[in-house]
Simulated scan of single mutants.
Amino acid sequence: MDDDIRPRATAGPVDLASAHVVITGGSSGIGLATARLLAVRGAKLSLIARGRDRLEAAANELSAAARVADVSDSQALTRALAELEAAQGRSCDVLITSAGLARPGHFLDLSDEVFRQMMDVDYFGTLHALRAVVPGMVKRGHGSVVAVSSAAGLVGIFGYSAYGPAKFAVRGLMESLRAELKPCGVHVGVVFPPDVDTPQLTEENRWKPQETRAIGGAIKPLSAERVAEAIIAGIDRRRFLICPDTGTRLLARSGSLLMPLLNREFDRRVRAVRRKHGNT
Protein backbone atom coordinates (compact mmCIF):
# COMPACT_ATOMS: atom_id res chain seq x y z
CA MET A 1 0.00 0.00 0.00
CA ASP A 2 1.11 3.56 -0.64
CA ASP A 3 2.30 4.87 2.73
CA ASP A 4 3.25 8.36 1.59
CA ILE A 5 1.37 10.52 4.11
CA ARG A 6 3.11 13.84 3.43
CA PRO A 7 0.51 16.60 3.06
CA ARG A 8 0.55 18.39 -0.25
CA ALA A 9 1.05 22.13 -0.41
CA THR A 10 -1.93 22.57 -2.70
CA ALA A 11 -4.75 20.20 -3.44
CA GLY A 12 -5.68 20.12 -7.10
CA PRO A 13 -7.94 17.67 -8.91
CA VAL A 14 -7.16 13.98 -8.55
CA ASP A 15 -5.38 12.60 -11.62
CA LEU A 16 -7.90 9.96 -12.62
CA ALA A 17 -5.45 8.41 -15.08
CA SER A 18 -3.40 7.09 -12.18
CA ALA A 19 -5.91 7.13 -9.31
CA HIS A 20 -7.20 4.19 -7.32
CA VAL A 21 -10.98 4.61 -7.49
CA VAL A 22 -13.31 2.59 -5.25
CA ILE A 23 -17.00 2.39 -6.21
CA THR A 24 -19.65 0.89 -3.96
CA GLY A 25 -22.62 -0.41 -5.92
CA GLY A 26 -20.17 -0.79 -8.80
CA SER A 27 -21.75 -3.83 -10.43
CA SER A 28 -24.76 -2.11 -12.02
CA GLY A 29 -26.54 1.16 -12.71
CA ILE A 30 -24.77 4.45 -12.01
CA GLY A 31 -21.83 2.73 -10.34
CA LEU A 32 -21.09 0.47 -13.30
CA ALA A 33 -21.56 3.28 -15.84
CA THR A 34 -19.10 5.42 -13.88
CA ALA A 35 -16.62 2.56 -13.65
CA ARG A 36 -16.74 2.09 -17.42
CA LEU A 37 -15.91 5.74 -18.06
CA LEU A 38 -13.13 5.66 -15.48
CA ALA A 39 -11.65 2.55 -17.09
CA VAL A 40 -11.30 4.55 -20.31
CA ARG A 41 -9.47 7.23 -18.31
CA GLY A 42 -7.00 4.60 -17.08
CA ALA A 43 -7.99 4.54 -13.40
CA LYS A 44 -7.24 1.58 -11.14
CA LEU A 45 -10.72 0.33 -10.33
CA SER A 46 -12.03 -1.45 -7.26
CA LEU A 47 -15.70 -2.44 -7.12
CA ILE A 48 -17.87 -3.42 -4.16
CA ALA A 49 -21.39 -4.87 -4.38
CA ARG A 50 -23.61 -7.46 -2.70
CA GLY A 51 -24.38 -9.66 -5.71
CA ARG A 52 -21.45 -11.90 -6.59
CA ASP A 53 -22.45 -12.81 -10.16
CA ARG A 54 -22.94 -9.27 -11.46
CA LEU A 55 -19.90 -8.07 -9.54
CA GLU A 56 -17.64 -10.72 -11.06
CA ALA A 57 -18.99 -9.94 -14.53
CA ALA A 58 -18.27 -6.22 -14.07
CA ALA A 59 -14.81 -6.89 -12.65
CA ASN A 60 -13.93 -9.16 -15.57
CA GLU A 61 -15.19 -6.65 -18.12
CA LEU A 62 -13.18 -3.80 -16.63
CA SER A 63 -10.13 -5.68 -15.30
CA ALA A 64 -11.06 -4.34 -11.87
CA ALA A 65 -10.46 -5.65 -8.39
CA ALA A 66 -13.66 -6.58 -6.57
CA ARG A 67 -15.01 -7.66 -3.20
CA VAL A 68 -18.48 -8.79 -2.20
CA ALA A 69 -19.80 -6.81 0.77
CA ASP A 70 -23.05 -5.40 2.12
CA VAL A 71 -22.46 -1.67 2.66
CA SER A 72 -24.79 -1.70 5.68
CA ASP A 73 -22.34 -4.06 7.45
CA SER A 74 -19.58 -1.72 8.66
CA GLN A 75 -17.11 -4.48 9.51
CA ALA A 76 -17.55 -6.31 6.20
CA LEU A 77 -17.29 -3.07 4.22
CA THR A 78 -14.22 -1.83 6.10
CA ARG A 79 -12.54 -5.21 5.57
CA ALA A 80 -13.39 -5.17 1.85
CA LEU A 81 -11.94 -1.68 1.45
CA ALA A 82 -8.72 -2.65 3.23
CA GLU A 83 -8.36 -5.76 1.06
CA LEU A 84 -8.88 -3.74 -2.11
CA GLU A 85 -6.27 -1.19 -1.10
CA ALA A 86 -3.82 -4.02 -0.45
CA ALA A 87 -4.67 -5.73 -3.75
CA GLN A 88 -4.18 -2.51 -5.72
CA GLY A 89 -0.98 -1.62 -3.89
CA ARG A 90 -2.17 1.86 -2.97
CA SER A 91 -4.68 3.67 -0.82
CA CYS A 92 -8.03 4.87 -2.12
CA ASP A 93 -7.68 8.17 -3.99
CA VAL A 94 -11.34 8.49 -5.00
CA LEU A 95 -14.41 6.98 -3.32
CA ILE A 96 -17.78 6.98 -5.07
CA THR A 97 -20.65 5.65 -2.95
CA SER A 98 -23.29 4.53 -5.42
CA ALA A 99 -24.82 1.60 -3.53
CA GLY A 100 -28.42 2.30 -2.60
CA LEU A 101 -31.99 1.11 -2.34
CA ALA A 102 -35.30 2.85 -3.01
CA ARG A 103 -38.56 1.46 -1.64
CA PRO A 104 -41.46 3.84 -2.19
CA GLY A 105 -44.90 3.32 -0.71
CA HIS A 106 -47.63 4.92 1.36
CA PHE A 107 -46.41 5.88 4.84
CA LEU A 108 -49.18 3.93 6.55
CA ASP A 109 -48.39 0.79 4.57
CA LEU A 110 -44.62 0.67 4.99
CA SER A 111 -43.14 -1.51 7.72
CA ASP A 112 -40.61 -0.29 10.25
CA GLU A 113 -38.10 -2.60 8.58
CA VAL A 114 -38.31 -0.63 5.31
CA PHE A 115 -37.46 2.60 7.13
CA ARG A 116 -34.50 0.92 8.83
CA GLN A 117 -33.28 -0.63 5.59
CA MET A 118 -33.28 2.67 3.74
CA MET A 119 -31.18 4.29 6.46
CA ASP A 120 -28.89 1.26 6.81
CA VAL A 121 -28.09 1.03 3.09
CA ASP A 122 -28.46 4.57 1.77
CA TYR A 123 -27.14 6.58 4.71
CA PHE A 124 -25.04 4.25 6.87
CA GLY A 125 -23.71 2.48 3.79
CA THR A 126 -22.31 5.84 2.69
CA LEU A 127 -21.08 6.73 6.17
CA HIS A 128 -19.26 3.41 6.74
CA ALA A 129 -17.32 3.76 3.48
CA LEU A 130 -16.35 7.35 4.23
CA ARG A 131 -15.21 6.49 7.74
CA ALA A 132 -12.91 3.83 6.29
CA VAL A 133 -11.10 5.92 3.67
CA VAL A 134 -11.28 9.58 4.72
CA PRO A 135 -8.67 9.35 7.52
CA GLY A 136 -6.05 8.23 4.98
CA MET A 137 -7.00 10.99 2.56
CA VAL A 138 -6.66 13.60 5.30
CA LYS A 139 -3.20 12.26 6.20
CA ARG A 140 -2.10 12.45 2.58
CA GLY A 141 -3.73 15.86 2.05
CA HIS A 142 -5.40 14.69 -1.14
CA GLY A 143 -8.42 12.75 -2.35
CA SER A 144 -12.02 12.91 -3.50
CA VAL A 145 -15.21 11.48 -2.01
CA VAL A 146 -18.49 11.59 -3.91
CA ALA A 147 -21.81 10.31 -2.57
CA VAL A 148 -24.89 9.63 -4.67
CA SER A 149 -27.95 11.21 -3.06
CA SER A 150 -31.12 11.82 -5.10
CA ALA A 151 -33.54 14.49 -6.25
CA ALA A 152 -35.64 13.02 -3.40
CA GLY A 153 -32.88 14.32 -1.10
CA LEU A 154 -33.69 17.86 -2.20
CA VAL A 155 -37.46 17.97 -1.84
CA GLY A 156 -40.00 15.82 0.00
CA ILE A 157 -42.06 13.75 -2.41
CA PHE A 158 -45.27 11.80 -1.84
CA GLY A 159 -44.46 8.10 -1.44
CA TYR A 160 -40.81 8.53 -0.40
CA SER A 161 -41.23 8.83 3.38
CA ALA A 162 -38.65 6.05 3.90
CA TYR A 163 -36.26 6.70 1.01
CA GLY A 164 -36.27 10.52 1.00
CA PRO A 165 -35.08 11.02 4.60
CA ALA A 166 -32.16 8.64 4.01
CA LYS A 167 -31.08 10.66 0.98
CA PHE A 168 -31.60 13.93 2.86
CA ALA A 169 -29.25 12.47 5.49
CA VAL A 170 -26.63 11.77 2.82
CA ARG A 171 -26.93 15.37 1.67
CA GLY A 172 -26.51 16.67 5.24
CA LEU A 173 -23.51 14.44 5.85
CA MET A 174 -21.74 15.62 2.71
CA GLU A 175 -22.52 19.29 3.39
CA SER A 176 -20.88 18.94 6.82
CA LEU A 177 -17.91 17.03 5.42
CA ARG A 178 -17.35 19.61 2.68
CA ALA A 179 -16.69 22.23 5.32
CA GLU A 180 -14.45 19.94 7.40
CA LEU A 181 -12.42 18.34 4.64
CA LYS A 182 -11.79 21.28 2.31
CA PRO A 183 -8.99 22.66 4.53
CA CYS A 184 -7.44 19.16 4.46
CA GLY A 185 -7.25 19.09 0.66
CA VAL A 186 -10.01 16.51 0.23
CA HIS A 187 -12.71 17.20 -2.36
CA VAL A 188 -16.28 16.37 -1.31
CA GLY A 189 -19.13 16.05 -3.80
CA VAL A 190 -22.75 14.95 -3.68
CA VAL A 191 -24.83 13.85 -6.67
CA PHE A 192 -28.55 14.55 -7.07
CA PRO A 193 -29.87 12.42 -9.93
CA PRO A 194 -33.57 12.29 -10.79
CA ASP A 195 -34.99 8.95 -12.00
CA VAL A 196 -32.26 7.03 -13.80
CA ASP A 197 -32.78 4.12 -16.18
CA THR A 198 -31.25 1.35 -14.04
CA PRO A 199 -32.27 -2.04 -12.63
CA GLN A 200 -32.92 -0.24 -9.35
CA LEU A 201 -35.57 1.96 -11.00
CA THR A 202 -37.28 -1.11 -12.45
CA GLU A 203 -37.52 -2.60 -8.95
CA GLU A 204 -38.61 0.73 -7.46
CA ASN A 205 -41.44 1.08 -9.98
CA ARG A 206 -42.98 -2.15 -8.68
CA TRP A 207 -43.83 -0.34 -5.44
CA LYS A 208 -44.43 3.22 -6.58
CA PRO A 209 -47.87 4.64 -5.61
CA GLN A 210 -49.99 6.16 -8.38
CA GLU A 211 -49.65 9.56 -6.73
CA THR A 212 -45.86 9.32 -6.91
CA ARG A 213 -46.05 8.39 -10.58
CA ALA A 214 -48.29 11.40 -11.22
CA ILE A 215 -45.85 13.76 -9.53
CA GLY A 216 -43.06 12.42 -11.73
CA GLY A 217 -45.23 12.99 -14.76
CA ALA A 218 -43.95 11.84 -18.13
CA ILE A 219 -40.35 12.85 -17.47
CA LYS A 220 -38.02 10.41 -19.19
CA PRO A 221 -35.42 8.86 -16.87
CA LEU A 222 -31.83 9.87 -17.46
CA SER A 223 -29.34 7.31 -18.67
CA ALA A 224 -26.81 6.00 -16.16
CA GLU A 225 -24.09 7.15 -18.55
CA ARG A 226 -25.23 10.77 -18.33
CA VAL A 227 -25.08 10.68 -14.54
CA ALA A 228 -21.65 9.03 -14.72
CA GLU A 229 -20.38 11.81 -16.98
CA ALA A 230 -21.60 14.39 -14.46
CA ILE A 231 -19.85 12.56 -11.61
CA ILE A 232 -16.52 12.46 -13.42
CA ALA A 233 -16.80 16.12 -14.43
CA GLY A 234 -17.56 16.94 -10.79
CA ILE A 235 -14.39 15.17 -9.64
CA ASP A 236 -12.29 16.82 -12.34
CA ARG A 237 -13.61 20.28 -11.38
CA ARG A 238 -13.85 19.60 -7.62
CA ARG A 239 -17.53 20.50 -7.53
CA PHE A 240 -19.65 19.99 -4.44
CA LEU A 241 -23.07 20.05 -6.12
CA ILE A 242 -23.15 17.50 -8.93
CA CYS A 243 -26.43 17.76 -10.84
CA PRO A 244 -26.76 15.81 -14.08
CA ASP A 245 -29.78 17.74 -15.36
CA THR A 246 -31.28 21.22 -15.31
CA GLY A 247 -34.22 20.31 -13.05
CA THR A 248 -32.16 19.00 -10.15
CA ARG A 249 -29.65 21.84 -10.56
CA LEU A 250 -32.50 24.32 -10.10
CA LEU A 251 -33.81 22.40 -7.09
CA ALA A 252 -30.36 22.21 -5.50
CA ARG A 253 -29.79 25.95 -5.84
CA SER A 254 -33.29 27.37 -5.34
CA GLY A 255 -35.37 24.60 -3.76
CA SER A 256 -36.38 26.56 -0.67
CA LEU A 257 -37.69 29.41 -2.81
CA LEU A 258 -39.55 27.04 -5.13
CA MET A 259 -41.13 24.89 -2.39
CA PRO A 260 -44.48 26.73 -2.17
CA LEU A 261 -44.98 26.42 -5.94
CA LEU A 262 -43.79 22.82 -6.00
CA ASN A 263 -46.05 21.79 -3.12
CA ARG A 264 -49.09 23.34 -4.77
CA GLU A 265 -48.36 21.49 -8.01
CA PHE A 266 -47.65 18.20 -6.21
CA ASP A 267 -50.90 18.53 -4.24
CA ARG A 268 -52.84 19.23 -7.43
CA ARG A 269 -51.52 16.06 -9.04
CA VAL A 270 -52.28 13.97 -5.96
CA ARG A 271 -55.86 15.27 -5.87
CA ALA A 272 -56.29 14.45 -9.56
CA VAL A 273 -55.14 10.84 -9.02
CA ARG A 274 -57.43 10.39 -6.03
CA ARG A 275 -60.45 11.77 -7.86
CA LYS A 276 -59.74 9.43 -10.74
CA HIS A 277 -59.60 6.40 -8.43
CA GLY A 278 -62.54 7.45 -6.28
CA ASN A 279 -60.51 8.46 -3.22
CA THR A 280 -60.92 11.68 -1.29
Rank of each mutant, 00 (worst) to 15 (best):
V94H: 00
P199A: 03
L154Q: 00
P165K: 06
G156Q: 02
F124A: 06
L84S: 03
E83L: 13
G159D: 03
L127F: 15
V145M: 05
E203T: 15
P199F: 11
T198C: 03
L130F: 11
M119L: 11
A102N: 10
G189C: 09
P104G: 08
L84K: 01
C92I: 06
S161T: 10
V145K: 00
K167V: 02
A166V: 01
R90N: 15
P165T: 11
G164L: 00
D109N: 15
A179G: 15
E175Y: 00
T212G: 14
A129M: 09
V196F: 05
G125L: 00
F124T: 05
D112Y: 09
G136M: 10
A82P: 12
Q210R: 15
R131T: 14
D93F: 02
L201F: 07
V145S: 01
L181M: 08
F192Q: 03
T97P: 07
R140S: 08
G105A: 07
F168G: 00
S98R: 07
F115V: 01
Q210H: 15
G143D: 00
Q88H: 13
Q88Y: 05
E203V: 14
Q88P: 08
A214I: 04
K139F: 13
D197V: 03
A166N: 09
S111E: 07
G100P: 03
I96G: 08
D112N: 14
A99W: 01
N205S: 13
Q117F: 04
V148L: 07
Y163T: 07
E180N: 13
V133T: 10
T202D: 09
A87G: 09
F124Q: 04
P165G: 10
V190H: 00
A214F: 04
R116C: 07
V196A: 04
T202K: 12
Y160E: 07
A99M: 05
V145D: 00
D195G: 07
L84G: 01
H187G: 04
G141M: 10
S149E: 11
S150A: 11
C184Q: 14
